[in-house]
Design a protein around this nucleic acid. Structure first.
Lengths: 142, 142
DNA sequence: TCGTTATTGATAATAATTCTCAATTATAAC
DNA sequence: GTTATAATTGAGAATTATTATCAATAACGA
């Protein structure tokens, strides 16, 4: 999905929830959508400031909270810090996250999605999302 | 694997790394091995104190750090807090963690392990571990 | 345009984790 | 068993990440 399309979806979600569309929010979401890798709150704030100077860290956290409630972002822990990345696509796949360079790669799992969900569903477990995060080392960093 | 066996493995790892076996460490590791669900650092400290009163939080964090370096524990984020659980078994399986009751269920994935690893390996990615964590809701909490 | 009300950025408060340090103690050598 | 050495301890301070507070601002429907 294209970033612009994702932005539209998010803005529509805002409108439908008594939440307002502000330049800060737009900048934060855009920065997150354009990032090629998970960002920390601080990094995201810095990126957002490139298009809308003065964005505060508090607004970043507040926007992330809204995105969370819409299930539009995911968090990963890399080392001892928490990073966040956009994830509006709910098709079955894995997010491969490199703990060295933080690069994110999507990995299609449609071939085994059925068996996978069956194994989990057998014990009556309901996953919060179809995507799974796998931390490791990418080919470039090995 | 039995908790006693796991404890032995951890103690052996300590001996081989210039790290000493102390009552506090033993209590912390034992508490973690016997827990049926992921614990926060504070919870683990409290549990460890049941067998060895006076264990400090700092020691808990230090022991967790050692366990991390041996890859004997895993972390999950539930809500906004980080929890930790013992995980010395490296066979292919999923850890199903309930975000409501924090209960942990193991789910065998041997049937799709091959295809799964193939899909990930195709892009040259090296997972840090064979186990994957899946957060969701268990049958009892739905 | 106006009024209502959500949002803002700055800063204070809180929570989680790491650091510091003197006292203690595990371990190996004798 | 004794001793020397060096890792470990718990308490509390320091740091870091996140959340709450607040007066000023701005989005948006009427």
């Amino acid at each position: 999905m294209k970033p612009e399309r994702q932005l539209d979806i998010f803005l529509a979600a805002l409108r439908g929830s008594d939440l307002r569309i502000t330049p800060s929010r737009r900048a934060i979401v855009q920065a997150l959508l354009c990032a090629a890798r998970p960002l920390s709150a601080e990094e995201l704030c810095h990126e957002a400031c490139r298009t809308h100077p003065g964005v505060g860290l508090a607004s970043v956290y507040r926007t992330l909270e809204a995105l969370q409630s819409f299930k539009y972002i995911r968090q990963v822990q890399l080392g001892r810090r928490v990073f966040v990345f956009a994830c509006m696509d709910e098709s079955q796949h894995a997010h491969l996250i490199c703990s060295v360079c933080h690069q994110l790669t999507e990995c299609d799992l449609s071939a085994i999605a059925g068996t996978f969900q069956q194994s989990i569903g057998r014990v009556g477990f309901q996953p919060a999302t179809n995507a799974i995060e796998i931390v490791g080392t990418c080919s470039a960093c090995q």
